[in-house]
């Protein structure tokens, strides 16, 4: 199995069929049928977008406008006020702080996972050392358990290390999974043996080979994985919810829920919705701007 070709059922394959197509034949759509297709797709896009649009609108109007339903469906003029309020004061803690926490966590998880996975995959593929098979299976086992399943004992471990309300507590338990290691292992196995031999003949020691040959050749894989892991890290909810009791350590995704009042008070919807929009922006930018890498990463990481 190679890293890119046999892995995903779909997107790994070139989608060039459309490009090399003959002029529209009998199976192509024209006229009314074509418009219907477009109409249905646009409808689909609108339905999918509606919740985001509504959130955006809500983030630009005043609290009373929302509290008296139905709320408007077109943006109001409170954009700057609401976002400024959210970013600088928020409800419990300024959203800017939560954004920073999310950023540190997402990047920490992505970089951490990539670094430890690159190193261990390199060792497992390019060395024969005592315990290699044992380590291989050890790492393989971690593939199977999402953090959700082992939350209580993991929480106890993190608490025992005094890592509650800390970045390391947010990051470390989530990089203990082997998906990335397997991805890199698969990729390294596709690097021709001769390249390593040529490097040996050229006099490269193992780490030199890693640094000069393996790493540059893995660039695309690393970037694709970074995109996926960034989103994975950014969108974490349960784990930050458990271990950040101090609001100043909240991440934005979990912090939104904390903005809802307990009891019967009316939620500050404009600020909450502005926060929701802010929580979406970084991952959305990453996905849309790096669409190709994102799709590739998605396909690769699904083994």
């Amino acid at each position: 199995m190679t890293a890119t070709h046999d892995i995903g059922p779909g997107p790994a394959q070139p989608s060039g069929r459309r490009a090399a197509e003959p002029p529209p034949g009998m199976v192509e759509r024209r006229g009314a049928s074509l418009w219907l297709t477009h109409a249905l797709l646009i409808l689909g896009v609108l339905v999918v977008f509606f919740p985001i649009w509504l959130a955006f609108v809500a983030s630009t109007v005043t609290q009373p406008e929302i509290a008296r339903p139905p709320m408007p469906l077109w943006p109001g003029d409170r954009f700057f006020e609401n976002y400024r309020e959210a970013l600088l004061s928020g409800v419990n803690v300024p959203v800017a702080t939560m954004l920073l926490n999310s950023l540190v966590m997402a990047i920490g998880i992505a970089v951490g996972k990539i670094v430890i996975s690159l190193l261990s995959a390199f060792a497992i593929v390019y060395f024969r050392f005592p315990g290699r098979t044992f380590f291989f299976w050890t790492i393989f086992l971690t593939l199977m358990l999402p953090v959700e399943v082992r939350i209580v004992p993991t929480y106890e471990v993190v608490a025992g290390f005094g890592m509650l309300n800390s970045y390391s507590g947010l990051i470390f338990p989530l990089i203990a999974s082997a998906t990335a290691t397997f991805l890199f292992r698969q990729f390294f196995l596709t690097i021709p043996d001769e390249l390593a031999e040529a490097a040996r003949v050229d006099g490269a020691k193992p780490m030199r080979f890693f640094w000069d040959i393996v790493l540059p050749m893995s660039r695309t894989n690393i970037a694709a994985l970074f995109v996926i892991l960034f989103i994975y890290g950014w969108n974490q909810y349960l784990w930050p919810l458990l271990i950040t009791t101090d609001p100043s350590m909240n991440t934005i995704v979990m912090g939104i829920k904390q903005m809802f009042p307990s009891g019967d008070d009316i939620a500050e919807w404009p600020v909450i919705m502005a926060t929701s929009i802010l929580a979406m922006i970084p991952p959305v930018i990453v996905v849309v701007s790096m669409q190709k890498l994102f799709i590739r990463g998605l396909v690769d990481s699904e083994k």
Binding site: E194, A198, P216, M217
Partner: peptide, 13 residues
């Protein structure tokens, strides 16, 4: 020594 490989083994990057 220097070696020329069957598939050339050039570093692609």
């Amino acid at each position: 020594i220097a070696m020329v490989f069957q598939n050339y083994a050039l570093y692609p990057h």
